[in-house]
Amino acid sequence: MEFKELDPILHSQLRLAVVSLLISVREAEFTFLKEKTNSTAGNLSVQINKLKDAGYIEVTKQFSNNYPQTICKVTKKGIESFEAYVNALQSYMNPGKE
């Protein structure tokens, strides 16, 4: 019986929550992610940067009505890593099936 290794980038509550939200939508603004994950702006910003550096999400900064807006979108690499992470989780949940 062998357990698959869990991706350390995704195996963090806030980063996993952000990627799970972005998997379900086309793109989302920073404030939407903050509201849904119930996190602080500072912590969310740090985790978003880590996901961006890993190439899992794309971050676009723009202005809307003179207010800065941060738009996040999951990348192909992010989707593949998320799928691999879920498969790895399943090997932990159903160890006999592998």
């Binding site: 963090s12 379900s24 994950t37 992470y85």
Partner: peptide, 19 residues
Amino acid sequence: MQPENFSPKDSLLLIDSMI
């Protein structure tokens, strides 16, 4: 929400809740 060790079951619950 802090980065911390959490179980595979917790991960699946979190994914399910966010989706």
